[in-house]
């Protein structure tokens, strides 16, 4: 049956069900079980925000608290994946990828290619991403474009609990390295989720709202802000189609292009910094593949090219807002 759960609960449920389904699934990361500073009882922490809490009680030693060395345990997870396990490693904040990037992009992403297809690397690296949590410049970044730049990695960034559960199950069952990015500002967001296991294929965008006037393509937290902008614009008779890309590698360009062929106008919204972003990537693809369909220049709404500010007032200005998205749509309509 279906009931409402939060995105945080959806992550936990997907991990739990995949561990039940497949004994080779293991979970590892910093403080995901007891944690180094915890009072000592098992399962005290369940990760910094408690996402994995309860799993140790059910699955015991298939969950491992690792030393505070991303390079060591991400490397171990990628190595274990080549030897028969399906590890899910939690990188805590995606901002920490710098210390284990060689393991991700030079090892995990390359094995299948360099060993002539004889090696598979079914590893999932989960990490929190995104701004709005008052967590400052080193814990708030949206680094999706860094990963989409690297061939051999699959990159997922869901916006709701339903997609989170199905895409995480798909990530675990997939035979390639998957970077699974969870926007920490959405952990409490609830939606209807079946109790049963299910998967959502990669490379399939979701059309959250159909419209004829303009297309907004986005992912993660800004999906909700784009829907809010669309609702505001609908009152003025502007009928916006909102596309949640859901997976960024592979990316569903077909759905975006099909939509632009109908609307003739595109706004790309991205919480990442603007240069070489998902927004610029989608914009370039549409400009190349569907130039004839465009009635106006493509608009991009992104974070500015700055670190994420710690000042709450500035952080709120940093993330694309519903008002900013609505303004960009109006600009395409006026052109």
């Amino acid at each position: 049956m279906t009931r409402k759960i939060s995105m945080k609960e959806a992550v936990n449920e997907a991990l739990d069900q995949e561990m039940q389904r497949d004994p080779t699934v293991v979970v590892m990361g910093e403080d995901i079980v007891g944690g180094t500073g915890s009072p000592g009882e098992d399962d005290a922490w369940g990760g910094v925000l408690g996402v994995t809490k309860g799993l140790y009680a059910k699955h015991g030693d298939r969950l491992m608290d690792t030393p505070l060395s991303e390079s060591a345990y991400i490397g171990a997870a990628i190595g274990a994946a080549t030897c028969g396990l399906r590890p899910v490693a939690e990188l805590m904040f995606v901002d920490f990828m710098g210390v284990c990037l060689d393991e991700i992009f030079n090892q995990g992403a390359k094995f299948r290619y360099m060993f002539g297809g004889k090696v598979e690397t079914p590893v999932v690296i989960r990490a929190m991403c995104g701004a709005g949590f008052r967590a400052a410049a080193q814990h708030s970044q949206m680094l999706t474009p860094v990963f989409t730049h690297i061939p051999g990695l699959k990159v997922v960034c869901p916006s709701n609990a339903y997609d989170t559960k199905g895409l995480l199950a798909q990530s675990i069952r997939d035979n390639d390295p998957v970077i699974f990015l969870e926007h920490k500002n959405l952990y409490a967001h609830e939606s209807d989720v079946p109790e049963e296991s299910y998967t959502i294929p990669f490379g399939e965008a979701a059309v959250l709202r159909e419209g004829k006037s303009a297309t907004v393509a986005t992912y993660g937290q800004t999906v909700h802000r784009s829907v809010e902008a669309a609702e505001t614009l609908a009152k003025d008779g502007v009928d916006v189609e909102v596309i949640d890309l859901r997976t960024l590698s592979p990316i569903d360009n077909d759905t975006v292009i099909e939509s632009v062929e109908k609307t003739g106008r595109l706004v790309c919204v991205d919480e990442a910094n603007p240069r070489c972003s998902i927004a610029s990537d989608v914009s370039a693809t549409v400009a190349q593949e569907a130039f004839g369909a465009l009635k106006a220049p493509i608009q991009m709404v992104t974070a500015p090219h700055t670190p994420v500010p710690f000042s709450p007032a500035l952080e709120d200005l940093y993330i694309p807002t519903a008002d900013g998205i609505a303004d960009a749509v109006r600009k395409t309509m006026a052109a």
């Binding site: 389904r21 079946p194 049963e196 296991s197 299910y198 959502i200 979701a206 059309v207």
Partner: peptide
């Protein structure tokens, strides 16, 4: 409708 197809896909994607 799009929703009808989306609902059917959600159903079809359940394990089993």
């Amino acid at each position: 409708s799009r929703q009808m197809i989306d609902d059917l896909l959600k159903y079809k994607r359940l394990d089993g």
